[in-house]
Design a protein around this nucleic acid. Sequence first.
DNA 1: GCCAACGTTGGC
DNA 2: GCCAACGTTGGC
Length: 161
Amino acid sequence: MASELYWLMKTEPDVFGFEDLLSRKGQTESWEGVRNYRARNFMRDQFKLGQFVFIYHSRVEEPAIIGIAKIVKEAYPDPTALDPKSKYFDEKSKKIGESRWCMVDVKAFARFAEPITLKRLKADPNLAGMALVMPGQRLSIQPVSPGEWAYVCSLSPQIPV
DNA sequence: GCCAACGTTGGC
DNA sequence: GCCAACGTTGGC
């Protein structure tokens, strides 16, 4: 059951984008810096090895789903919460002596030949129920149903990375 | 445990 | 850069 779940993770390409993931050793990176409880709980409780994730670029001129990554390591503590030099430092984690936050490792899997823009997703009646297109939906990690996943994937060819 | 103030997100 | 939505914090 859990293995049929899909996800979407937002990122600001100015900070860390799909290109950065591709440039990493093994095209793998730990997804640090998530500081929202609902998003954390998704990662901690429901992210499983081998699941697929849409990588979405936000805060850019044309917000869009850029590519696909794969979960290669399940949730473990995010050490940046304990690092005072990190911009993800968390005072409360320091007080309790352990990170309140967690992260997973993702590996790039494919890019979409045509980025699937938010505009396009919003205009598509088949995706009217998708969390991403809901007004005011700001959660940085969202579940994607198998139907939504398959439909979005049908909108553009994938280029293996 | 309520809720006002404040901070952040993210599309536009 | 604006601002609406929503999450978090902290005083009471």
